[in-house]
Design a binder for these strands. Structure first.
Lengths: 143, 143
DNA sequence: AAATTTTCCCACTTTTTACCACCAAATCTG
DNA sequence: CAGATTTGGTGGTAAAAAGTGGGAAAATTT
Protein backbone atom coordinates (compact mmCIF):
# COMPACT_ATOMS: atom_id res chain seq x y z
CA UNK A 1 0.00 0.00 0.00
CA UNK A 2 1.30 3.43 -0.95
CA UNK A 3 1.59 6.17 1.63
CA UNK A 4 -1.29 8.52 2.30
CA UNK A 5 -1.28 12.04 0.95
CA UNK A 6 -1.87 14.40 3.83
CA UNK A 7 -0.95 17.76 5.28
CA UNK A 8 -1.26 21.26 3.91
CA UNK A 9 1.45 23.35 2.30
CA UNK A 10 1.48 27.04 1.37
CA UNK A 11 3.10 28.18 -1.84
CA UNK A 12 2.77 30.94 -4.37
CA UNK A 13 2.56 31.19 -8.12
CA UNK A 14 5.33 33.34 -9.59
CA UNK A 15 5.15 35.74 -12.54
CA UNK A 16 5.88 32.91 -14.95
CA UNK A 17 2.93 30.84 -13.74
CA UNK A 18 5.13 28.39 -11.88
CA UNK A 19 4.61 27.04 -8.41
CA UNK A 20 6.75 24.70 -6.38
CA UNK A 21 4.91 21.55 -5.51
CA UNK A 22 5.41 20.27 -1.92
CA UNK A 23 8.25 17.79 -1.69
CA UNK A 24 6.44 15.46 0.68
CA UNK A 25 3.52 15.10 -1.71
CA UNK A 26 5.83 14.70 -4.71
CA UNK A 27 7.64 11.90 -2.93
CA UNK A 28 4.36 10.00 -2.72
CA UNK A 29 2.85 10.92 -6.08
CA UNK A 30 5.98 10.10 -8.05
CA UNK A 31 7.92 11.92 -10.79
CA UNK A 32 4.86 12.85 -12.84
CA UNK A 33 1.19 13.49 -12.22
CA UNK A 34 -1.99 14.87 -13.71
CA UNK A 35 -3.79 18.12 -12.99
CA UNK A 36 -7.57 17.97 -13.43
CA UNK A 37 -10.70 19.92 -12.65
CA UNK A 38 -11.85 19.47 -9.06
CA UNK A 39 -15.44 18.33 -8.88
CA UNK A 40 -17.15 19.36 -5.71
CA UNK A 41 -15.45 22.70 -5.17
CA UNK A 42 -13.11 25.21 -6.82
CA UNK A 43 -9.71 23.52 -6.84
CA UNK A 44 -7.31 21.58 -9.01
CA UNK A 45 -7.21 17.84 -8.37
CA UNK A 46 -3.83 16.12 -8.63
CA UNK A 47 -3.65 12.41 -9.49
CA UNK A 48 -0.84 9.94 -9.88
CA UNK A 49 -0.78 8.27 -13.34
CA UNK A 50 -2.45 5.20 -11.84
CA UNK A 51 -5.26 7.19 -10.25
CA UNK A 52 -5.67 9.19 -13.41
CA UNK A 53 -6.10 5.95 -15.32
CA UNK A 54 -8.86 4.89 -12.92
CA UNK A 55 -10.48 8.29 -13.22
CA UNK A 56 -10.50 8.04 -16.98
CA UNK A 57 -11.96 4.56 -16.95
CA UNK A 58 -14.78 5.66 -14.70
CA UNK A 59 -15.48 8.52 -17.06
CA UNK A 60 -15.52 6.16 -20.02
CA UNK A 61 -18.14 4.00 -18.41
CA UNK A 62 -20.72 6.79 -18.41
CA UNK A 63 -23.05 6.17 -21.36
CA UNK A 64 -24.81 8.48 -23.80
CA UNK A 65 -24.50 12.13 -24.67
CA UNK A 66 -24.04 13.03 -21.03
CA UNK A 67 -21.01 10.76 -20.89
CA UNK A 68 -19.32 12.18 -23.93
CA UNK A 69 -20.05 15.75 -22.85
CA UNK A 70 -18.53 14.99 -19.48
CA UNK A 71 -15.43 13.43 -21.01
CA UNK A 72 -14.98 16.40 -23.30
CA UNK A 73 -15.45 18.88 -20.53
CA UNK A 74 -13.23 17.22 -17.96
CA UNK A 75 -10.46 15.67 -20.02
CA UNK A 76 -9.91 18.79 -22.12
CA UNK A 77 -8.54 20.53 -19.05
CA UNK A 78 -6.31 17.73 -17.80
CA UNK A 79 -2.61 18.28 -17.95
CA UNK A 80 0.33 15.95 -17.36
CA UNK A 81 3.07 17.65 -15.38
CA UNK A 82 6.66 16.71 -14.72
CA UNK A 83 8.21 19.00 -12.12
CA UNK A 84 11.46 20.74 -13.05
CA UNK A 85 14.70 20.16 -11.13
CA UNK A 86 13.51 22.57 -8.47
CA UNK A 87 10.25 20.71 -8.01
CA UNK A 88 8.06 23.31 -9.72
CA UNK A 89 5.11 22.77 -12.03
CA UNK A 90 3.34 25.01 -14.50
CA UNK A 91 -0.35 25.71 -13.96
CA UNK A 92 -2.27 25.82 -17.27
CA UNK A 93 -4.46 28.93 -17.64
CA UNK A 94 -7.81 27.08 -17.90
CA UNK A 95 -7.22 25.19 -14.67
CA UNK A 96 -5.94 28.28 -12.99
CA UNK A 97 -9.11 30.05 -14.01
CA UNK A 98 -11.32 27.18 -12.88
CA UNK A 99 -9.76 27.09 -9.42
CA UNK A 100 -9.63 30.90 -9.24
CA UNK A 101 -5.96 30.80 -8.35
CA UNK A 102 -4.43 34.20 -7.74
CA UNK A 103 -0.99 34.23 -6.21
CA UNK A 104 -1.04 32.45 -2.87
CA UNK A 105 -2.15 28.85 -2.99
CA UNK A 106 -2.48 25.96 -0.56
CA UNK A 107 -1.78 22.39 -1.57
CA UNK A 108 -3.44 19.74 0.58
CA UNK A 109 -3.21 15.96 0.72
CA UNK A 110 -6.55 14.12 0.64
CA UNK A 111 -5.63 10.45 0.93
CA UNK A 112 -5.48 9.23 -2.69
CA UNK A 113 -5.07 12.60 -4.39
CA UNK A 114 -3.85 16.13 -3.73
CA UNK A 115 -5.70 19.39 -4.18
CA UNK A 116 -4.52 22.88 -5.14
CA UNK A 117 -6.65 25.69 -3.67
CA UNK A 118 -6.45 29.43 -3.79
CA UNK A 119 -5.43 30.45 -0.30
CA UNK A 120 -8.44 32.73 0.17
CA UNK A 121 -10.88 30.00 -0.85
CA UNK A 122 -9.14 27.48 1.38
CA UNK A 123 -9.34 29.84 4.34
CA UNK A 124 -13.02 30.31 3.61
CA UNK A 125 -13.51 26.55 3.46
CA UNK A 126 -11.86 26.21 6.84
CA UNK A 127 -14.10 28.83 8.36
CA UNK A 128 -17.18 27.33 6.78
CA UNK A 129 -16.43 23.71 7.63
CA UNK A 130 -15.52 23.09 11.25
CA UNK A 131 -14.79 19.87 13.06
CA UNK A 132 -17.74 20.54 15.35
CA UNK A 133 -20.14 20.74 12.39
CA UNK A 134 -19.01 17.36 11.23
CA UNK A 135 -19.07 15.77 14.65
CA UNK A 136 -22.11 13.59 13.96
CA UNK A 137 -20.29 12.01 11.04
CA UNK A 138 -17.26 11.59 13.27
CA UNK A 139 -18.92 9.51 15.95
CA UNK A 140 -18.50 6.30 14.01
CA UNK A 141 -14.92 7.19 13.35
CA UNK A 142 -13.41 6.56 16.75
CA UNK A 143 -10.75 3.92 16.54
CA UNK B 1 -1.59 -7.80 20.73
CA UNK B 2 0.58 -4.72 21.11
CA UNK B 3 1.02 -3.05 24.48
CA UNK B 4 -1.51 -0.52 25.71
CA UNK B 5 -0.70 3.16 25.68
CA UNK B 6 -1.23 4.63 29.13
CA UNK B 7 0.05 7.17 31.60
CA UNK B 8 0.46 10.94 31.44
CA UNK B 9 3.66 12.84 30.79
CA UNK B 10 4.38 16.55 31.08
CA UNK B 11 6.54 18.24 28.50
CA UNK B 12 7.01 21.62 26.91
CA UNK B 13 7.26 23.00 23.41
CA UNK B 14 10.47 24.93 22.72
CA UNK B 15 10.95 28.05 20.58
CA UNK B 16 11.41 25.92 17.48
CA UNK B 17 8.08 24.17 17.93
CA UNK B 18 9.71 20.94 19.09
CA UNK B 19 8.63 18.78 21.99
CA UNK B 20 10.11 15.59 23.30
CA UNK B 21 7.68 12.75 23.05
CA UNK B 22 7.52 10.40 26.07
CA UNK B 23 9.90 7.47 25.69
CA UNK B 24 7.44 4.94 27.06
CA UNK B 25 4.81 5.89 24.50
CA UNK B 26 7.38 5.96 21.70
CA UNK B 27 8.47 2.45 22.60
CA UNK B 28 4.92 1.26 21.99
CA UNK B 29 4.00 3.41 19.00
CA UNK B 30 7.15 2.61 17.08
CA UNK B 31 9.66 4.75 15.16
CA UNK B 32 7.07 6.84 13.32
CA UNK B 33 3.51 7.98 13.89
CA UNK B 34 0.82 10.37 12.72
CA UNK B 35 -0.47 13.52 14.36
CA UNK B 36 -4.15 14.28 13.65
CA UNK B 37 -6.98 16.50 14.80
CA UNK B 38 -8.66 15.22 17.95
CA UNK B 39 -12.39 14.91 17.47
CA UNK B 40 -14.29 15.26 20.69
CA UNK B 41 -12.11 17.83 22.39
CA UNK B 42 -9.18 20.17 21.77
CA UNK B 43 -6.15 17.92 21.47
CA UNK B 44 -3.85 16.27 18.98
CA UNK B 45 -4.46 12.57 18.39
CA UNK B 46 -1.41 10.38 17.81
CA UNK B 47 -1.77 7.16 15.81
CA UNK B 48 0.60 4.41 14.77
CA UNK B 49 0.86 3.94 10.99
CA UNK B 50 -1.50 0.95 11.22
CA UNK B 51 -4.14 2.86 13.17
CA UNK B 52 -3.79 5.80 10.83
CA UNK B 53 -4.43 3.50 7.91
CA UNK B 54 -7.63 2.30 9.57
CA UNK B 55 -8.63 5.87 10.32
CA UNK B 56 -8.13 6.85 6.71
CA UNK B 57 -10.11 3.93 5.38
CA UNK B 58 -13.02 4.80 7.62
CA UNK B 59 -12.85 8.35 6.34
CA UNK B 60 -12.80 7.14 2.75
CA UNK B 61 -15.99 5.18 3.28
CA UNK B 62 -18.08 8.28 4.00
CA UNK B 63 -19.94 9.15 0.80
CA UNK B 64 -20.93 12.44 -0.80
CA UNK B 65 -19.88 16.03 -0.32
CA UNK B 66 -19.86 15.57 3.43
CA UNK B 67 -17.35 12.79 3.05
CA UNK B 68 -14.98 14.75 0.86
CA UNK B 69 -15.25 17.82 3.07
CA UNK B 70 -14.42 15.66 6.04
CA UNK B 71 -11.42 14.10 4.35
CA UNK B 72 -10.21 17.52 3.26
CA UNK B 73 -10.64 19.02 6.68
CA UNK B 74 -9.10 16.21 8.67
CA UNK B 75 -6.36 14.91 6.40
CA UNK B 76 -5.07 18.39 5.58
CA UNK B 77 -3.95 18.67 9.18
CA UNK B 78 -2.37 15.23 9.54
CA UNK B 79 1.36 14.99 9.77
CA UNK B 80 3.74 12.04 9.75
CA UNK B 81 6.45 12.44 12.35
CA UNK B 82 9.72 10.63 12.90
CA UNK B 83 11.31 11.66 16.21
CA UNK B 84 14.92 12.88 16.12
CA UNK B 85 17.72 11.14 17.99
CA UNK B 86 16.65 12.91 21.15
CA UNK B 87 13.09 11.66 20.78
CA UNK B 88 11.59 15.01 19.81
CA UNK B 89 8.86 15.74 17.27
CA UNK B 90 7.80 18.92 15.51
CA UNK B 91 4.26 20.19 16.04
CA UNK B 92 2.83 21.68 12.82
CA UNK B 93 1.27 25.13 13.32
CA UNK B 94 -2.29 24.16 12.28
CA UNK B 95 -2.44 21.33 14.78
CA UNK B 96 -0.89 23.47 17.45
CA UNK B 97 -3.58 26.04 16.80
CA UNK B 98 -6.36 23.46 16.82
CA UNK B 99 -5.30 22.03 20.15
CA UNK B 100 -4.55 25.50 21.56
CA UNK B 101 -1.09 24.40 22.61
CA UNK B 102 0.90 27.10 24.34
CA UNK B 103 4.09 25.96 26.00
CA UNK B 104 3.35 23.31 28.59
CA UNK B 105 1.65 20.20 27.31
CA UNK B 106 0.54 16.85 28.67
CA UNK B 107 0.79 13.69 26.65
CA UNK B 108 -1.54 10.90 27.71
CA UNK B 109 -1.89 7.30 26.65
CA UNK B 110 -5.43 6.26 25.71
CA UNK B 111 -5.19 2.54 24.91
CA UNK B 112 -4.78 2.46 21.12
CA UNK B 113 -3.67 6.06 20.60
CA UNK B 114 -2.00 8.90 22.46
CA UNK B 115 -3.22 12.45 22.95
CA UNK B 116 -1.38 15.74 23.25
CA UNK B 117 -3.17 18.35 25.38
CA UNK B 118 -2.35 21.84 26.45
CA UNK B 119 -1.61 21.58 30.16
CA UNK B 120 -4.25 24.15 31.10
CA UNK B 121 -6.95 22.39 29.11
CA UNK B 122 -5.95 19.05 30.57
CA UNK B 123 -6.14 20.43 34.11
CA UNK B 124 -9.57 21.82 33.31
CA UNK B 125 -10.64 18.46 31.96
CA UNK B 126 -9.54 16.82 35.17
CA UNK B 127 -11.51 19.25 37.28
CA UNK B 128 -14.57 18.97 35.07
CA UNK B 129 -14.60 15.20 34.78
CA UNK B 130 -14.26 13.19 37.95
CA UNK B 131 -14.39 9.46 38.52
CA UNK B 132 -17.44 9.95 40.79
CA UNK B 133 -19.39 11.55 37.94
CA UNK B 134 -18.74 8.52 35.84
CA UNK B 135 -19.54 5.97 38.53
CA UNK B 136 -22.65 4.63 36.81
CA UNK B 137 -20.60 3.70 33.79
CA UNK B 138 -18.06 2.14 36.08
CA UNK B 139 -20.35 -0.37 37.77
CA UNK B 140 -19.97 -3.00 35.12
CA UNK B 141 -16.27 -2.53 35.19
CA UNK B 142 -15.29 -4.48 38.29
CA UNK B 143 -12.90 -7.26 37.40
C1' DA C 1 15.28 35.15 -39.95
C1' DA C 2 13.94 37.97 -36.03
C1' DA C 3 11.20 38.20 -32.14
C1' DT C 4 8.58 36.26 -28.71
C1' DT C 5 7.40 32.60 -25.88
C1' DT C 6 8.48 28.52 -23.45
C1' DT C 7 11.41 25.40 -21.13
C1' DC C 8 15.25 24.17 -18.61
C1' DC C 9 19.02 24.90 -15.51
C1' DC C 10 22.06 27.57 -12.34
C1' DA C 11 22.93 30.00 -8.06
C1' DC C 12 21.53 32.37 -4.07
C1' DT C 13 18.56 32.56 0.12
C1' DT C 14 15.87 30.68 3.50
C1' DT C 15 14.07 27.06 6.02
C1' DT C 16 14.34 22.66 7.83
C1' DT C 17 16.48 18.83 9.80
C1' DA C 18 20.03 16.27 12.00
C1' DC C 19 23.46 16.13 15.21
C1' DC C 20 26.34 17.41 19.24
C1' DA C 21 27.07 18.63 23.90
C1' DC C 22 25.40 19.86 28.28
C1' DC C 23 22.13 19.35 32.22
C1' DA C 24 19.03 17.02 35.25
C1' DA C 25 16.87 13.25 37.13
C1' DA C 26 16.53 8.70 38.19
C1' DT C 27 18.74 4.30 39.00
C1' DC C 28 22.22 1.28 40.34
C1' DT C 29 26.05 -0.22 43.15
C1' DG C 30 29.50 -0.48 46.62
C1' DC D 1 23.18 6.04 52.10
C1' DA D 2 26.29 8.35 48.94
C1' DG D 3 28.78 8.45 44.84
C1' DA D 4 28.69 6.92 40.18
C1' DT D 5 26.50 5.71 36.00
C1' DT D 6 22.95 5.65 32.81
C1' DT D 7 18.93 7.47 30.69
C1' DG D 8 15.98 10.98 29.27
C1' DG D 9 15.32 16.02 28.20
C1' DT D 10 16.85 20.72 26.50
C1' DG D 11 19.29 24.28 23.98
C1' DG D 12 22.19 25.42 20.42
C1' DT D 13 24.81 24.91 16.03
C1' DA D 14 26.03 23.16 11.64
C1' DA D 15 24.85 20.86 7.52
C1' DA D 16 21.50 19.72 4.18
C1' DA D 17 17.48 20.41 1.65
C1' DA D 18 13.90 23.02 -0.23
C1' DG D 19 12.20 27.38 -2.28
C1' DT D 20 12.76 31.46 -5.16
C1' DG D 21 14.44 34.55 -8.66
C1' DG D 22 16.82 35.11 -12.65
C1' DG D 23 19.02 34.06 -17.05
C1' DA D 24 20.29 31.25 -21.10
C1' DA D 25 18.99 28.02 -24.54
C1' DA D 26 15.52 25.93 -27.28
C1' DA D 27 11.38 26.06 -29.62
C1' DT D 28 7.66 28.34 -31.74
C1' DT D 29 5.52 32.02 -34.19
C1' DT D 30 5.19 35.80 -37.28
Amino acid sequence: MEATLCGSYEHSIDVKGRMSFPTKLRDILGPEFYLCIGHDDKFIAVYSPEKFEEYQEKLSSIPGKKGSDLRRKLLSCCDRQIPDKQGRILIPPQLRKHALLEKDVVVIGASNHAEIWDKKLWDEFNERVTVDDLSDALEDLVL
